[in-house]
């Protein structure tokens, strides 16, 4: 069953085109990857799916700043959510974990997880924290530590853990592997697989480097300059000569 469908999405920042006629779909229970280099439009896509761009557009408008224009449609479980606010989308189960390990630096790890549970009841937050600690056992020992003092990998584990407290149906991970050691990358990739297998979460993950994520994704999209250049299953993309040349250096 199709969970979310993006139809002919175009996003402009003033006159600059960040996403150009981009379409994709994600089935329930899939892991889908979006691969692209810097400034390819990955983060814009994530912000548009999560609705953050709606909030950015309102704020820029009030400030008299940059004009953001969005065309196209996003259909989530049969409902058009193109103009829905980010908080309503979170309530529907679309949760974004932003790029560059977004955590609240002044708060402890435990408090970060509690803040993330804003929409949830106390009992659900407790369950969510357990759930996050089960996926990332390293977090347990760090509970009292201020998030600002964690390493990049620990912050990324926390960031994903925070999204889990919200109980996502569709989890959007924006460059979760950015700037991490190969070992940490491997660990996170395994965690993403477990998310799908154990909790049935649908995951959309973006990456600059195809190598660590291609083996685990069911399907992938390659974007360049905001445009879709290639799409296929993980296997197909791995065997594609262009991808090999561009992303594996073979």
């Amino acid at each position: 069953m199709i969970m979310i469908e993006v139809q002919n999405l175009m996003v402009f920042f003033e006159n600059a085109l960040a996403l150009n006629d981009f379409s994709m779909k994600i089935e329930e229970g899939e892991i889908v990857g979006v691969i692209g280099s810097n400034s390819a439009g990955k983060t814009t896509l994530m912000n548009t799916l999560s609705g953050l761009i709606i909030d950015m557009r309102t704020k820029e408008k009030r400030k008299g700043g940059e004009r953001i224009t969005i065309y196209g449609k996003i259909i989530y479980r049969g409902e058009d959510i193109s103009e829905m606010s980010p908080s309503d989308r979170v309530k529907k189960g679309i949760v974004l974990s932003r790029e560059r390990h977004p955590v609240f630096h002044e708060s402890s790890v435990l408090e970060n997880l509690k803040i993330a549970g804003y929409l949830r009841k106390q009992s659900e937050i407790r369950e969510g924290i357990e759930y996050a600690c089960r996926l990332f056992p390293a977090l347990v020992a760090l509970k009292g530590r201020k998030a600002g003092f964690l390493s990049g990998g620990e912050q990324q584990m926390l960031a994903i853990g925070m999204s889990l407290v919200v109980r996502p149906k569709l989890l959007l991970l924006d460059e979760p592997l950015l700037g991490l050691s190969p070992m940490m990358q491997k660990m996170l990739v395994e965690a993403i697989c477990r998310l799908k297998d154990e909790f049935g979460t649908t995951v959309l993950v973006t990456e600059q480097f195809a190598r660590p994520v291609l083996p685990i994704i069911d399907r992938g999209y390659v974007i360049e300059n905001g445009m879709l250049t290639l799409a296929g299953t993980g296997r197909e993309l791995m065997d594609n000569p262009e991808i090999k040349a561009a992303y594996f250096g073979i």
Binding site: L52, P86, S87, V90, L96, E106, K114, S163, V166
Partner: peptide, 27 residues
């Protein structure tokens, strides 16, 4: 601010508004 949902949301928004929005807070 440390133990209620609204108070924690205050702490979140104060530190990083855009990240706070991803948890369903309305700025």
């Amino acid at each position: 601010v440390h133990f209620t949902s609204l108070g924690l949301a205050f702490r979140g928004i104060a530190q990083d508004e855009r990240t706070a929005l991803t948890f369903g807070m309305d700025s």
